[in-house]
Design a protein around this nucleic acid. Sequence first.
DNA 1: ATGACGATTTACT
DNA 2: GTAAATCGTCATA
Length: 215
Amino acid sequence: MRSPTAAPAAARADRRFFATDAETLARRLLGQRLVRVLEDGTRLAGVIVETEAYLGERDAAAHSYGGRRTPRTEPMFGPPGTSYVYFTYGMHHCMNISAGREGEPVAVLIRALEPIEGVERMRALRAGATSEKPLAVQALANGPGRLCQALAIDRTLSGLDMTRSEVLFVERIRRRSLSEWQLVNTPRIGVDGAGAWAHRLLRWYIRGHPCVSRR
DNA sequence: ATGACGATTTACT
DNA sequence: GTAAATCGTCATA
Protein backbone atom coordinates (compact mmCIF):
# COMPACT_ATOMS: atom_id res chain seq x y z
CA MET A 1 0.00 0.00 0.00
CA ARG A 2 1.31 3.39 -0.91
CA SER A 3 0.99 6.09 1.67
CA PRO A 4 -1.25 8.99 0.69
CA THR A 5 1.68 11.34 0.70
CA ALA A 6 3.99 9.22 -1.45
CA ALA A 7 4.81 10.47 -4.89
CA PRO A 8 2.96 8.71 -7.70
CA ALA A 9 4.90 5.91 -9.29
CA ALA A 10 6.85 7.11 -12.29
CA ALA A 11 5.74 5.61 -15.57
CA ARG A 12 8.24 3.21 -17.00
CA ALA A 13 9.09 3.63 -20.66
CA ASP A 14 7.29 0.85 -22.54
CA ARG A 15 7.76 -0.87 -25.89
CA ARG A 16 6.04 1.88 -27.80
CA PHE A 17 8.39 4.45 -26.34
CA PHE A 18 11.41 2.65 -27.84
CA ALA A 19 9.77 1.46 -31.05
CA THR A 20 10.75 4.31 -33.31
CA ASP A 21 13.70 5.19 -35.49
CA ALA A 22 17.00 5.77 -33.70
CA GLU A 23 17.11 9.50 -34.40
CA THR A 24 13.69 10.01 -32.87
CA LEU A 25 14.54 7.86 -29.87
CA ALA A 26 17.80 9.74 -29.34
CA ARG A 27 15.84 12.97 -28.99
CA ARG A 28 13.00 11.36 -27.06
CA LEU A 29 15.36 10.00 -24.41
CA LEU A 30 16.73 13.43 -23.55
CA GLY A 31 15.21 14.61 -20.30
CA GLN A 32 14.05 11.13 -19.32
CA ARG A 33 15.42 9.26 -16.33
CA LEU A 34 17.75 6.28 -16.59
CA VAL A 35 17.49 4.04 -13.52
CA ARG A 36 19.90 1.38 -12.29
CA VAL A 37 18.99 -0.70 -9.24
CA LEU A 38 21.97 -2.34 -7.53
CA GLU A 39 21.91 -5.78 -5.92
CA ASP A 40 21.48 -4.23 -2.48
CA GLY A 41 18.45 -2.31 -3.72
CA THR A 42 20.16 1.05 -4.04
CA ARG A 43 18.62 3.17 -6.77
CA LEU A 44 21.01 5.10 -8.97
CA ALA A 45 19.38 7.45 -11.44
CA GLY A 46 19.98 10.45 -13.60
CA VAL A 47 18.48 12.55 -16.34
CA ILE A 48 19.73 11.73 -19.81
CA VAL A 49 21.33 14.84 -21.29
CA GLU A 50 23.32 13.54 -24.29
CA THR A 51 22.66 10.78 -26.85
CA GLU A 52 23.78 9.49 -30.23
CA ALA A 53 21.89 7.52 -32.88
CA TYR A 54 23.40 4.53 -34.70
CA LEU A 55 21.51 3.64 -37.82
CA GLY A 56 22.30 -0.01 -38.38
CA GLU A 57 23.48 -1.88 -41.46
CA ARG A 58 24.02 1.21 -43.60
CA ASP A 59 25.84 3.17 -40.86
CA ALA A 60 29.61 2.75 -41.18
CA ALA A 61 30.08 3.89 -37.59
CA ALA A 62 27.74 1.27 -36.14
CA HIS A 63 28.83 -2.08 -34.78
CA SER A 64 26.04 -3.56 -36.90
CA TYR A 65 27.43 -2.04 -40.11
CA GLY A 66 26.94 -4.35 -43.05
CA GLY A 67 24.54 -6.45 -40.99
CA ARG A 68 27.30 -7.81 -38.81
CA ARG A 69 25.59 -10.03 -36.27
CA THR A 70 27.72 -11.58 -33.54
CA PRO A 71 27.17 -12.59 -29.92
CA ARG A 72 28.26 -9.10 -28.88
CA THR A 73 25.97 -7.18 -31.24
CA GLU A 74 23.00 -9.51 -30.92
CA PRO A 75 21.09 -7.19 -28.55
CA MET A 76 21.05 -4.50 -31.24
CA PHE A 77 18.83 -6.86 -33.24
CA GLY A 78 16.49 -7.44 -30.32
CA PRO A 79 13.08 -5.90 -29.66
CA PRO A 80 13.12 -2.13 -29.14
CA GLY A 81 14.10 -1.38 -25.56
CA THR A 82 16.82 -4.04 -25.39
CA SER A 83 20.02 -2.96 -23.65
CA TYR A 84 23.25 -3.22 -25.61
CA VAL A 85 26.35 -2.83 -23.44
CA TYR A 86 29.79 -3.38 -24.90
CA PHE A 87 33.35 -3.35 -23.58
CA THR A 88 35.98 -1.31 -25.38
CA TYR A 89 39.56 -0.09 -25.13
CA GLY A 90 40.19 -2.92 -22.70
CA MET A 91 38.68 -0.96 -19.84
CA HIS A 92 35.45 0.88 -20.59
CA HIS A 93 31.81 -0.01 -21.11
CA CYS A 94 29.25 1.89 -23.18
CA MET A 95 25.49 1.54 -22.95
CA ASN A 96 22.91 1.65 -25.72
CA ILE A 97 19.21 0.98 -26.08
CA SER A 98 17.93 -0.71 -29.21
CA ALA A 99 15.35 1.13 -31.28
CA GLY A 100 13.42 0.45 -34.47
CA ARG A 101 11.91 -2.98 -34.95
CA GLU A 102 13.07 -6.40 -33.88
CA GLY A 103 15.68 -7.63 -36.35
CA GLU A 104 16.69 -4.09 -37.27
CA PRO A 105 20.05 -3.36 -35.59
CA VAL A 106 19.65 0.31 -34.72
CA ALA A 107 20.34 1.80 -31.30
CA VAL A 108 20.92 4.90 -29.23
CA LEU A 109 24.11 5.42 -27.25
CA ILE A 110 23.59 7.11 -23.89
CA ARG A 111 26.51 9.49 -23.54
CA ALA A 112 25.82 11.55 -20.41
CA LEU A 113 23.56 11.91 -17.40
CA GLU A 114 22.80 14.50 -14.80
CA PRO A 115 23.06 12.43 -11.57
CA ILE A 116 19.88 12.68 -9.48
CA GLU A 117 19.60 9.70 -7.13
CA GLY A 118 22.39 7.83 -5.36
CA VAL A 119 24.96 10.51 -6.09
CA GLU A 120 27.26 9.49 -3.26
CA ARG A 121 27.21 5.89 -4.42
CA MET A 122 28.06 7.03 -7.92
CA ARG A 123 30.95 9.01 -6.54
CA ALA A 124 32.25 5.92 -4.80
CA LEU A 125 31.89 3.85 -7.96
CA ARG A 126 33.82 6.48 -9.89
CA ALA A 127 36.43 7.11 -7.22
CA GLY A 128 38.72 4.34 -8.37
CA ALA A 129 39.15 6.03 -11.73
CA THR A 130 41.12 8.99 -10.50
CA SER A 131 43.55 9.89 -7.78
CA GLU A 132 41.88 13.25 -7.43
CA LYS A 133 39.61 14.58 -4.76
CA PRO A 134 35.92 13.63 -4.81
CA LEU A 135 34.53 14.28 -8.26
CA ALA A 136 32.09 17.09 -8.94
CA VAL A 137 28.55 16.00 -9.77
CA GLN A 138 28.96 17.12 -13.36
CA ALA A 139 32.00 14.87 -13.75
CA LEU A 140 30.34 11.66 -12.56
CA ALA A 141 28.54 10.61 -15.74
CA ASN A 142 29.58 13.04 -18.48
CA GLY A 143 30.73 10.48 -21.02
CA PRO A 144 29.64 6.98 -22.05
CA GLY A 145 32.39 5.18 -20.14
CA ARG A 146 32.05 7.34 -17.06
CA LEU A 147 28.29 6.88 -17.07
CA CYS A 148 28.62 3.09 -17.04
CA GLN A 149 31.16 3.25 -14.27
CA ALA A 150 28.97 5.56 -12.16
CA LEU A 151 25.95 3.26 -12.58
CA ALA A 152 27.85 -0.04 -12.28
CA ILE A 153 26.81 -1.06 -15.77
CA ASP A 154 28.86 -3.74 -17.52
CA ARG A 155 28.23 -6.26 -20.24
CA THR A 156 26.47 -8.65 -17.89
CA LEU A 157 23.62 -6.14 -18.30
CA SER A 158 23.64 -6.40 -22.09
CA GLY A 159 20.57 -7.94 -23.73
CA LEU A 160 18.07 -7.01 -21.02
CA ASP A 161 14.52 -6.14 -21.92
CA MET A 162 14.38 -2.70 -20.36
CA THR A 163 10.59 -2.66 -20.48
CA ARG A 164 10.68 -5.53 -17.98
CA SER A 165 14.01 -5.43 -16.17
CA GLU A 166 14.08 -4.55 -12.48
CA VAL A 167 17.72 -3.49 -12.61
CA LEU A 168 17.94 -1.22 -15.64
CA PHE A 169 15.12 0.84 -17.16
CA VAL A 170 13.92 4.27 -18.20
CA GLU A 171 11.33 6.28 -16.32
CA ARG A 172 9.33 8.87 -18.14
CA ILE A 173 9.25 12.06 -16.21
CA ARG A 174 7.04 15.00 -16.70
CA ARG A 175 8.85 17.40 -18.91
CA ARG A 176 6.82 20.54 -18.99
CA SER A 177 10.08 22.37 -19.42
CA LEU A 178 11.34 20.17 -22.23
CA SER A 179 9.87 22.39 -24.89
CA GLU A 180 11.89 25.18 -23.37
CA TRP A 181 15.14 23.30 -23.77
CA GLN A 182 17.19 23.84 -26.84
CA LEU A 183 18.76 20.76 -28.31
CA VAL A 184 22.12 20.93 -30.01
CA ASN A 185 22.72 18.55 -32.93
CA THR A 186 26.31 17.68 -33.89
CA PRO A 187 28.39 14.90 -35.45
CA ARG A 188 29.02 11.88 -33.27
CA ILE A 189 32.11 11.60 -31.08
CA GLY A 190 34.92 9.15 -31.73
CA VAL A 191 33.79 7.85 -35.13
CA ASP A 192 36.29 9.62 -37.36
CA GLY A 193 37.06 6.40 -39.19
CA ALA A 194 33.55 6.15 -40.56
CA GLY A 195 34.02 8.27 -43.67
CA ALA A 196 30.97 10.32 -44.65
CA TRP A 197 29.03 8.86 -41.74
CA ALA A 198 31.38 10.61 -39.35
CA HIS A 199 29.91 13.92 -40.49
CA ARG A 200 26.26 13.05 -40.04
CA LEU A 201 24.51 15.04 -37.33
CA LEU A 202 23.47 12.16 -35.10
CA ARG A 203 24.43 13.43 -31.65
CA TRP A 204 22.10 15.51 -29.51
CA TYR A 205 22.48 17.21 -26.19
CA ILE A 206 20.72 19.77 -24.04
CA ARG A 207 22.23 23.15 -24.80
CA GLY A 208 24.26 24.57 -21.96
CA HIS A 209 23.84 21.58 -19.68
CA PRO A 210 26.87 21.20 -17.37
CA CYS A 211 26.79 17.40 -17.49
CA VAL A 212 27.36 17.03 -21.23
CA SER A 213 30.66 15.37 -22.21
CA ARG A 214 33.60 17.25 -23.72
CA ARG A 215 32.81 20.57 -22.17
C1' DA B 1 45.97 -19.47 -33.20
C1' DT B 2 47.11 -14.84 -34.12
C1' DG B 3 47.03 -9.86 -34.78
C1' DA B 4 44.78 -5.37 -35.21
C1' DC B 5 41.75 -2.39 -33.32
C1' DG B 6 38.42 0.19 -30.61
C1' DA B 7 31.06 4.47 -30.29
C1' DT B 8 37.17 6.16 -24.10
C1' DT B 9 39.42 8.08 -20.25
C1' DT B 10 43.19 9.73 -17.72
C1' DA B 11 47.56 11.70 -16.87
C1' DC B 12 51.08 14.27 -18.35
C1' DT B 13 54.03 17.92 -21.32
C1' DG C 1 47.95 19.63 -27.03
C1' DT C 2 49.77 14.05 -26.92
C1' DA C 3 50.28 9.32 -25.20
C1' DA C 4 49.40 5.36 -22.46
C1' DA C 5 46.42 2.09 -20.48
C1' DT C 6 44.44 -2.65 -21.48
C1' DC C 7 41.71 -6.75 -23.30
C1' DG C 8 37.44 -8.57 -25.61
C1' DT C 9 36.01 -9.05 -30.17
C1' DC C 10 36.41 -10.05 -34.85
C1' DA C 11 38.51 -11.20 -39.22
C1' DT C 12 41.90 -13.94 -41.20
C1' DA C 13 44.46 -18.16 -41.55
